[in-house]
């Protein structure tokens, strides 16, 4: 059986200052339907490049990405991306922002309102429908963006460091909410982060990536249930295991010094 998302021998090369730079070097990855995958790694490891390639925003130099048996070439409304800087339309209020995708789907106005309201309630923004993005906090803006993504009932949600610009407490609250929503809505989620704890808290599997060239170091299955406790021993055990993976990189440096 072939898996839902297949990345095969993905390579992405950039020319920077006349030097060739491998953002992705021969990356292959399989993702099943309904999985929550975190792409984890330091900056420059190609995690965002890989996400953009799967989402269809970026084209690979070599290799292919297949989703549900179809080669990916363009972004589609069935695969929604949530960006770090939210991507809201500042001239529209919350409910009109959330309705954006429904307009493409040609859903009548009255029905749009009902669907949008449902997802505004789901992300906990009830009562703020008439506000404009500039009147909301960063966390609230990202909730609007998540609601907007969910309204079109996508098969896959891509999240590119979505909580990177938020303070620690807001981030934890949103992590809990996105975990709850992902269980409830049963979406396939691919989530880019450089925060190890965030990855362990959210993912079914963590794809650990390394830089120079961008590649997959290892894929870690997170053997934790749906209710995750950040200070439980099994949570800390998984986190330590991933920390160890990154330590290998420092050992490489040590060899280099000798």
């Amino acid at each position: 059986m072939t898996s839902y998302i297949q990345v095969r021998k993905a390579c992405k090369k950039f020319i920077h200052n006349g030097k060739e730079f491998n953002a992705l070097d021969n990356v292959s990855l399989d993702i099943n339907k309904g999985e929550f995958i975190c792409l984890l790694g330091p900056s420059g490891c190609g995690k965002s490049t890989l996400l953009n390639a799967i989402a269809g925003f970026d084209h690979l130099t070599e290799g292919s990405v297949m989703i549900d048996g179809q080669e990916v070439s363009e972004p589609t409304i069935n695969h929604i991306t949530i960006f770090q800087n939210y991507g809201l339309l500042p001239w529209r209020n919350v409910i009109r922002n959330v309705e954006l995708g429904l307009e493409t789907k040609k859903i009548p106005k009255e029905e749009r309102k009902i669907i949008a309201q449902k997802y505004i309630d789901l992300v906990g923004l009830t009562g703020l429908e008439k506000r404009h993005p500039a009147q909301l906090s960063g966390g609230q803006q990202q909730r609007v963006s998540i609601a907007r993504g969910l309204t079109v009932d996508p098969d896959i949600i891509f999240m590119d460091e979505p909580f990177g610009a938020l303070d620690a407490i807001t981030r934890m609250k949103l992590q809990e909410d996105i975990l709850r929503i992902s269980r409830q809505e049963k979406k396939t989620i691919i989530f880019v982060t450089h925060d190890i704890e965030e990855a362990v808290f959210l993912a079914d599997r963590i794809v650990v990536m390394m830089a120079n060239p961008g590649r997959i170091k290892s894929i870690v299955k997170v053997p934790l249930g749906h209710h995750r406790d950040r200070i439980a021993s099994d949570f800390l055990y998984v986190r330590d295991k991933i920390l160890e993976l990154f330590n290998i990189k420092t050992e490489e440096y040590i060899e280099y010094y000798i």
Binding site: P75, T76, T81, E103
Partner: peptide, 27 residues
């Protein structure tokens, strides 16, 4: 570029992209 990415993602193209997203964004 985020506005263009959002428009592409929600399959808003052509004149709809211009009037719904690009014009208000640059206004």
């Amino acid at each position: 570029p985020i506005y263009l990415k959002v428009a592409k993602n929600f399959e808003i193209s052509g004149s709809a992209a211009t009037w719904k997203v690009i014009f208000p964004a640059v206004f």
